[in-house]
Design a protein around this nucleic acid. Structure first.
Length: 942
RNA sequence: GCGGGGGUCGCCCAGCCUGGUCAACGGCGCGAGGCUUAGGACCUCGUCCCUUAGGGGUUCGUGGGUUCGAAUCCCACCCCCCGCACCA
C-alpha cells in the first residue's frame, strides 16, 4: 500500500465519510452486494461485481444522496466445514490449495482444522484488502451469517414463511453421500457431475414362488423379451421385500432399503446358480430362460435385466456370444440359446427390422464386452424413442409411439401387480469426500414452495416494478420465476441456523440469504452492543421489520430501552427498500430470484427491491478463471500489483452490461499509467497556462465538457461503468489534448474549472488520486464529499462548437487532398465562400425542407453557377445537428474563424495555409473559389 | 432437450431498440514522425482496397426478404458462450 493510499484511507476514516445514519428528509440510496462465501480469498470476479456498487455509491454521494453500502460474510453451508475436515484428514490437495493458491502462511493453515477459524481467516484477509482498495463501505454493520443475532433474524423469517404456508414438507429422491449423511450436489462431486436419480421400472418375472426382479428403462419392449440376463460371477440374494420374495443382486438390497422398501435378506448365492432356470414374464406369460451375461452390472439397479435382442445391442451381442461359442455355457443353455431369434417389436424408418443388428454392424462390434456397445445403444435408443412406432407383435401396445407405449406398458404391468420402482444413478457418482453415492429417498424434507402460483405471481410483480440494469436481464428473471420448483431449504450438516420448529435441520445457504439486507439495519445496533441476540425475539423483529406492536410494551418484555427499539424501526424504515442489488448473472437463476420471492412474501410493496444490477462473469486473459488451472487472480494480488486506483479503473473499463469481462494484465498496466500521469499532466498544463480572456476555443472546451458530463452521468445511473469511465478518462482527456494543441496559450481559469470538475468525475473510480488532485488544485474539503459537476456550470456555445467542427472538417478534407495529390506543393489556399453563396445555401436548404419554391432560389442565384445537388448533398452530410447550427449560427463568421486558425492548420498539415474569402480581388489562379460553400471552403494547392 | 446471451475492419469492443449523418466510436497491437543521450512514457499522423483534388469500390457469421436506402427491421440457417437446481 502506498503512502498516498494510507493517507486518504485515514482521512476518510477519521471523517466517518462512509458511515451513514438516517437523516430525516434526506434522500437515500441503499446498495447491497451478495455476500461472498468465506472458504477462499476474494478474487477479481468479486471485485468486478462489487466495484459497480462502489462506483455507483460514490457517484450517488456526490449527487447529494445519503448512501449506505454495507458488507457481510457468508459462512453458512457445507464447503467450509468440508474443506476443514479434509484438511484434518490430511488431504494433500486441500492443503496445497491453501498454501499455493491462496498463499496462506503455513502456521495459519495448521489452524484451518477448525472451520470457524478458516472462515475467520479469509474474512479478515478479505476485509483488509477491500478496505485498502478504498471501498466506501460502512463497516460498522459488518456481520457473519453464523452470528447469534443473525440467526435470530433467520429464525424470524422462517417462522413467518412457515406460518404463511411457504415452507412445506416433501419426500424426494436425492443423490446421497452416506459418509456426509447429506445430499450431494453437483458441485460437491469428485465424479459424476450432472448425474441425477433416474427412475427404473422393476419388472417381476415369476420364478417359482420368487420374483426375479429385472430393472429396465424400456418397459415398452416387454413383448420382445427372449430371455433374462444375470451376471454369473456376481452375488445375488433371496430377500423378503415389502412382504414378497424377491431375487435381486445383493448389492441392490441396501439401496432398496434406502428407498423406503422393507428389506429382509434371506439367502445369498452366485448368479450362476440362476442360470438355466426359467422365469415367467408379465403380459406375455412367456417362460424365459435365464442366461449368464457378464456385461450385466450387478451394482446397477437389481443386477437383473431382461433381453430384447432385436432392439438392444448388448442383448444381441451377448446372445451371439453364446450361440457362436465365444462364451462357454452348459449344453442345455446352449440349446435354448440356439432356439432364440430376435423379436422385433417396433418399426423404425431408416433401419431394418432388427435395428440392433444394424448398429452392431455399423460399429463393427465383435462381442458383448465391446465398449462401442454403449454408443450403439445410445443411437438406437434415441432413434427409437423419437421415431419408433410399436408393431402388431406388441399386442396392446401396437401403433403407439415409444413414449406412449412406455406409459401404457407401465400401466398394464402395474395392473398385474408385477411392477415396482427404483431410483438409480445411471453413472457412478463419488462425493468430494471420496465416498460412493447412491439414491436415497429423503422423507419429510423442508421445501420453499416456489411452485406456488400465487407466490410466483407476487415475485413477478417485484420484478415488474423494479429497474433492471441492463434491461435485457429482465427476461431472465421471468423465465426463472416460471421455471422454479420447490426448493429444499434445509440440510442436515454444515454451518448455519436451525429451523426453529425442527432442530434437526439447518437452513440451507441460499435460503438464509434472501432478505438479509434488512439485517444491516439491525447489525449496526448489535455491533454497538445496543441490542443483544436474546432481545431479538420474533415480537421485537415484527416491530422493527413490520411495524407491528407497541414499542413500549415490547421494550419491557425484551429488556431493551424503548428508544433503541424506536431507533431500530427508524433505521429500517429509512434505509429500506434496497435501491440496488448488484451481482453477476450467475445469480439470477437462484439467489436474486429468491431475493425477489422472499421480499414479496414478507414485506409490503413499498419495501420491495427497487433495482437489480447484473454484470457478466470475469475471464482472465480470455480464459475462464480456474483455481486448479492456475488461471486465477486474487483481489489482493491485483490490488498490490497495480495499486488501488489503477485496479479500480481497470475494473471499470473492462466491460459493460451483461458482457463478460476479460481481465488482462496489459489493460491494467495501461490503466496504471493513465492514473499515474493525471496529476503530472494537470500540473504541467497549469504551469504552461496563462491568465487571459476566454476565446472561442475555451467556449468549445466548456461546451464539450458539458456533453461529457451528460454522458458520464447517464452511464453511471445505468451502471454502464465502462462507458462512464471511458468518458471520464479517455474522452475528456482527448478533449484536453486537442485544446492544448489548438490553443496558443491555454487559459488558466478555464483549465482550473475543468480540472476541478474532472477530479470530481474521476473520484468514484480513482478516489485516492482524485483526492490528491483536488488538493493540488487547492480544492477545499474532500472530493468524495463534493458535488457531481452540473452541466449548467459548463454552458454550451453553439457557435464555438460549430467553429471547431468546421475547422475539423476542413483539416480532414485538406489532409485527404494532400494525401492524394502527388508532386511538389508549397501552399494551400483556402477559399471561404462568399456571402451570396452562403445565402444561396441557406435559402436553398430552407426551400427544400419546407417544400418551398426551389426554382425561384435557383434563378435568383444563377450567377453563382453552383450545382444545387452539391448543396443538398452537403446539407445531408452535415447532419441535422451541425446543419441546425449553421442555420442558426449568427455569431459565427467562417472566414474570421478559419483565418484565426490558419496557423494551427499550417502546423497540423505541415504546409503554409492562406485563408481568403471568395470575392473579386483574390489570389485564385485555378478559379476554384467559386466552388466554396458554407463549412466547405474550396482549396487550391500550389 | 429447455431457457438466455452473442458472432462488427489483426485483437478487445461501440453502434443495432428509434434504418440514412457508417468504411463504421474508442482501446490494444502495428507503421511513420516528433520529443529524448538511448529506451520507456508522452504527443501527432496512418493502419480494408484503389485513387495526382476532398472521390470510388467491397465490407459488419451465411443465405434470402422488406425499403429509394440495412451493421441496424423481418425470415431461415450455421457457429460460439452461459444456466438447468438439494448447491456457493
Amino acid at each position: 500500500m502506498s503512502a498516498r493510499e494510507k493517507h486518504w484511507l485515514k482521512v476518510w476514516d477519521e471523517k466517518h465519510a462512509f458511515e451513514p445514519d438516517p437523516v430525516a428528509g434526506k434522500k437515500k440510496v441503499f446498495v447491497t452486494f451478495p455476500f461472498p462465501y468465506m472458504n477462499a480469498a476474494v478474487h477479481v470476479g468479486t471485485a468486478f461485481t462489487a466495484s459497480h456498487l462502489e462506483f455507483y455509491s460514490r457517484f450517488k454521494r456526490l449527487q447529494g444522496y445519503n448512501v449506505l453500502f454495507p458488507w457481510a460474510w457468508h459462512w453458512t453451508g457445507q464447503p467450509i466445514v468440508g474443506m476443514s475436515k479434509r484438511l484434518r484428514e490430511g488431504d494433500p490437495d486441500v492443503r496445497r490449495a491453501f498454501l499455493e493458491l491462496d498463499h496462506v502462511p503455513e502456521q495459519e493453515v495448521a489452524k484451518f482444522v477448525d472451520p470457524e477459524y478458516l472462515a475467520s481467516y479469509y474474512t479478515k484477509q478479505s476485509r483488509k484488502v477491500m478496505k485498502e482498495t478504498g471501498f466506501s463501505i460502512d463497516w460498522r454493520r459488518e456481520f457473519r451469517t453464523i452470528d447469534p443475532a443473525f440467526r435470530k433474524f433467520v429464525e424470524w423469517q422462517y417462522f413467518h414463511l412457515r406460518e404463511m404456508g411457504y415452507v412445506v414438507q416433501g419426500t424426494h429422491p436425492v443423490v446421497w453421500c452416506p459418509f456426509d449423511k447429506s445430499p450431494t450436489g453437483d458441485h460437491d462431486r469428485m465424479e459424476g457431475e450432472g448425474v441425477s436419480p433416474t427412475e427404473f421400472n422393476l419388472i417381476k418375472f415369476h420364478l417359482g414362488e420368487f420374483a426375479l426382479v429385472a430393472a429396465t428403462l424400456r418397459p415398452e419392449t416387454i413383448y420382445g423379451a427372449t430371455n433374462v440376463w444375470v451376471n454369473p460371477d456376481a452375488d445375488y440374494s433371496e430377500a423378503r421385500v415389502d412382504g414378497e420374495l424377491w431375487i435381486v443382486s445383493s448389492a441392490s438390497l441396501s439401496k432398496l432399503s434406502e428407498q423406503k422398501h422393507n428389506v429382509v435378506p434371506v439367502r445369498e448365492f452366485k448368479g450362476s446358480d440362476l442360470v438355466g432356470r426359467y422365469a415367467m414374464a408379465p403380459l406375455t406369460g412367456k417362460s424365459l430362460p435365464v442366461f449368464p451375461g457378464r456385461f450385466v452390472d450387478p451394482s446397477l439397479a437389481t443386477g437383473v435385466v431382461y433381453s430384447v435382442p432385436a432392439h438392444a445391442p448388448y442383448d444381441l451381442m451377448a446372445l451371439r456370444d453364446i450361440q457362436e461359442g465365444r462364451v462357454q455355457v452348459g449344453r442345455q443353455v446352449k440349446e435354448e440359446a440356439d432356439k432364440i431369434t430376435p423379436i422385433p417389436i417396433l418399426s423404425l424408418s431408416g433401419y431394418s427390422r432388427v435395428p440392433a443388428e444394424d448398429a452392431i454392424r455399423k460399429l463393427s462390434i465383435k462381442d458383448s464386452m465391446d465398449p462401442n456397445l454403449e454408443t450403439a445403444t445410445q443411437e438406437i435408443y434415441s432413434a427409437e424413442f423419437h421415431r419408433g412406432v410399436l408393431s402388431q407383435s406388441s399386442g396392446p401396445l401396437a401403433d403407439l409411439t415409444v413414449p406412449e407405449a412406455k406409459d401404457k406398458a407401465v400401466e398394464l404391468i402395474a395392473k398385474t401387480e408385477r411392477l415396482a420402482k427404483m431410483f438409480e444413478l445411471p453413472e457412478k457418482v463419488v462425493c468430494r469426500c471420496g465416498t460412493r453415492c447412491y439414491v436415497k429417498i429423503l422423507e419429510n424434507q423442508w421445501f420453499l414452495n416456489y411452485s406456488n402460483p400465487e407466490w410466483k405471481a407476487k415475485a413477478k410483480l417485484v420484478i415488474d416494478r423494479a429497474e433492471i440494469y441492463p434491461e435485457e436481464a429482465r427476461q431472465l428473471f421471468y423465465s426463472t420465476i416460471e421455471w422454479l420448483k420447490d426448493w429444499p431449504c434445509a440440510r442436515r450438516s454444515g454451518m448455519g441456523t436451525r429451523l426453529p420448529w425442527d432442530k434437526d435441520w439447518l437452513v440451507e445457504t441460499l435460503s438464509d440469504s434472501t432478505i438479509y439486507m434488512a439485517y444491516y439495519c439491525i447489525s449496526k445496533f448489535v455491533n454497538l452492543e445496543k441490542v443483544g441476540p436474546d432481545s431479538l425475539t420474533p415480537e421485537v423483529l415484527d416491530y422493527v421489520l413490520l411495524g407491528k406492536g407497541s414499542p413500549a410494551n415490547l421494550a419491557k418484555a425484551a429488556r431493551i430501552p424503548e428508544r433503541v427499539l424506536r431507533d431500530l424501526r427508524t433505521e429500517f424504515s429509512y434505509w429500506y427498500p434496497v435501491d440496488l442489488r448488484n451481482s453477476g448473472k450467475d445469480l439470477i437463476p437462484n439467489h436474486l430470484t429468491f431475493f425477489a420471492f422472499h421480499h414479496a412474501a414478507l414485506f409490503p410493496e413499498k419495501f420491495w427491491p427497487r433495482g437489480f444490477g447484473i454484470n457478466g462473469m470475469i475471464t482472465i486473459e480470455g480464459k475462464r478463471m480456474s483455481k486448479t488451472k492456475g488461471n486465477f487472480v486474487t483481489w489482493e494480488g491485483a490490488k498490490e500489483k497495480y495499486g488501488a486506483d489503477a485496479f479500480r479503473l481497470a475494473l471499470a473499463l473492462t466491460a459493460d452490461g451483461m458482457d463478460d469481462a476479460d481481465w488482462r494484465d496489459r489493460a491494467a498496466m495501461d490503466a496504471k499509467e493513465k492514473v499515474d500521469s493525471v496529476i503530472p499532466f494537470v500540473k504541467k498544463t497549469l504551469r504552461s497556462s496563462a491568465d487571459r480572456k476566454a476565446d472561442g476555443l475555451d467556449s468549445w472546451l466548456v461546451s464539450s465538457f458539458n456533453g461529457r458530463i451528460a454522458v458520464a452521468s447517464e452511464a453511471m445511473e445505468e451502471l454502464r461503468m465502462r462507458r462512464a469511465s471511458a468518458t471520464v478518462f479517455l474522452d475528456i482527456w482527448n478533449d484536453l489534448r486537442y485544446y492544448l494543441r489548438r490553443a496558443g496559450k491555454p487559459r488558466r481559469q478555464t483549465l482550473t474549472e475543468v480540472f476541478n470538475a474532472w477530479a470530481r468525475m474521476m473520484s468514484p473510480f480513482t478516489p485516492f488520486m482524485a483526492e490528491e488532485l483536488n488538493r493540488e488544485l487547492g480544492g477545499k474539503g474532500l472530493v468524495c464529499q463534493a458535488d457531481w459537476p452540473a452541466p449548467d456550470d459548463f454552458p454550451v456555445d453553439d457557435d464555438a462548437v460549430l467553429a471547431e467542427a468546421v475547422l475539423g472538417r476542413v483539416i480532414e478534407d485538406a489532409r485527404n487532398v494532400l494525401k492524394v495529390v502527388k508532386g511538389a506543393r508549397s501552399k494551400l489556399n483556402v477559399y471561404v465562400c462568399s456571402d451570396e453563396a452562403k445565402a444561396f445555401f441557406l435559402e436553398l436548404t430552407a426551400a427544400k425542407q419546407s417544400k418551398g419554391n426551389v426554382g425561384q432560389v435557383l434563378k435568383k442565384h444563377a450567377s453563382l453557377k453552383i450545382q444545387p445537388d452539391r448543396v443538398f448533398k452537403l446539407a445531408y452530410e452535415l447532419g441535422e445537428d451541425l446543419l441546425g447550427k449553421v442555420v442558426a449560427g449568427r455569431g459565427f463568421d467562417e472566414f474570421q474563424s478559419l483565418s484565426e486558425a490558419s496557423e494551427f492548420m499550417a502546423k497540423e498539415l505541415g504546409i503554409e495555409v492562406v485563408v481568403q474569402k471568395t470575392g473579386k480581388q483574390i489570389h485564385d489562379p485555378a478559379n476554384r473559389a467559386k466552388d466554396a460553400l458554407p463549412t466547405k471552403p474550396a482549396f487550391y494547392l500550389e
